[in-house]
Amino acid sequence: MLGSDGGPIKRSEVILFPKNKNKTLFRSLPPEMQELISQRKNWYEALLEYRDGLAHRIPLYIPPYTVLQKDVKAYNDLEKRKYEAILRGDENEYNKIKAKMSEKEKWAPQIMHSFSEKARPILFHAQMIVDMKTLFELCDAMCNALDDLVYTEG
Rank of each mutant, 00 (worst) to 15 (best):
M1L: 13
M1I: 15
S4P: 03
D5M: 11
G6S: 04
G6M: 03
G7M: 11
S12E: 13
E13N: 05
V14A: 12
I15P: 00
I15D: 02
I15F: 02
F17R: 03
P18L: 02
N20W: 07
K21H: 06
K21C: 01
T24H: 00
S28V: 04
L29V: 03
P31E: 14
M33D: 01
Q34M: 01
I37E: 01
W43A: 00
L47I: 04
L48W: 11
R51H: 07
D52A: 01
A55D: 05
A55N: 06
H56C: 03
R57M: 05
R57A: 09
R57Q: 12
I58T: 10
P59G: 02
P59H: 00
I62N: 05
P64R: 05
Y65S: 09
V67C: 03
L68G: 08
K70C: 04
D71E: 04
K73Y: 09
A74W: 03
A74S: 14
D77H: 10
L78V: 01
E79D: 09
K80L: 11
K80E: 12
R81S: 05
Y83A: 12
R88Y: 09
G89C: 06
E91A: 08
E91F: 07
E91I: 08
N92T: 07
N92F: 09
N92E: 11
N92Y: 08
N92L: 06
Y94C: 02
Y94I: 05
N95G: 01
N95Q: 08
I97D: 00
A99C: 03
A99S: 13
E103H: 03
E105L: 05
E105I: 06
K106N: 14
K106I: 12
H113G: 05
S114G: 08
F115N: 04
E117N: 13
K118Q: 12
K118W: 13
R120S: 10
R120W: 14
P121H: 04
I122C: 10
L123G: 07
L123D: 10
F124C: 14
I129A: 09
D131L: 06
M132H: 15
F136L: 12
F136D: 08
E137C: 03
A141I: 02
N144R: 11
A145I: 08
D147E: 15
L149Q: 14
Y151S: 13
E153G: 11
